[in-house]
Amino acid sequence: MAKQDGSSIQLKMLVMAAALVTVATAAPAWGSLGGDAASVQADQIQLQGTRTLKAAGSYTVHEIQAANGTVVREYVSAAGKVFAIAWHGPWIPDMRQLLGSYFDQYAQANQAQRGARMRRAPILINQPGLVVQVGGHPRAFAGTAYVPEMLPSGVSAENIQ
């Protein structure tokens, strides 16, 4: 694929050097969505990934490139909280890891999603306190999760990608 070009490999190597420094620093907190910036490191370690940072106005995007091709973007507010996550990759990532304390709400919503007819369709959870979307097919899944109440002012769902 076009994504695997030389420049991205170089970038990866640079990022890897940076990541080594980061990993050595703090004891990571468990769980990401709603967690503090340190929990991003936990995700990075669990995903065996490399990480890049991008500032975007009122928040910072931490992009983790996992060894298996999954890309996870974690959105950290100025207050240092992860308010949103977006990801895409060949398989669905570890949602327990990414959703942290919101995982149980996600799992319960999935159990409740069964309708009158058997359905094989995107996951669309839109609840007070949690929005999760998961779609795609084997080898090309994608998803987002965010806590509406935590979105910095001026940031909307469309910014999370």
């Binding site: 890309v71 895409h88 979307q133 779609g135 994608a142 998803g143 987002t144």
Partner: peptide
């Protein structure tokens, strides 16, 4: 039919 997802990077798709 039904809605697909809003997601960037591998954004909303048509199935």
């Amino acid at each position: 039919g039904g809605p697909s997802i809003i997601s960037g990077s591998g954004p909303a798709y048509f199935d």
